[in-house]
């Protein structure tokens, strides 16, 4: 384990910046959450309507 810790690279810059700017995170967090909600609305709209039948019908011949 000690060896693994030693090899561990510095944490990528972005995540350290996020820690420094706590108040911005919640605003940013809200924005991400609302974007995610929009995305999920969109996914619900385009997702195959009868998922079970669709999954059953998705049969491929084996290839390489």
């Amino acid at each position: 384990m000690a060896e693994r810790e030693q090899k561990k690279r510095p944490t990528p810059r972005e995540s350290q910046e996020q820690i420094d700017e706590t108040p911005a995170v919640s605003e940013e967090g809200e924005k991400i959450k609302s974007e995610l909600d929009d995305l999920l609305d969109e996914i619900d709209e385009v997702l195959e309507t009868n998922a079970e039948d669709f999954v059953k019908s998705y049969i491929q011949k084996g290839g390489q």
């Binding site: 995305l39 969109e42 996914i43 385009v46 997702l47 195959e48 998922a51 079970e52 669709f54 999954v55």
Partner: peptide, 25 residues
């Protein structure tokens, strides 16, 4: 084990631009 998750998995790679879930991400 919900079929919708398998459907999502397949549709992630559906190349029709309006159906492609990867495109939304």
């Amino acid at each position: 084990d919900d079929a919708r998750l398998r459907a999502l998995d397949i549709q992630y790679a559906d190349l029709r631009p309006h159906k492609c879930l990867f495109n939304k991400l």
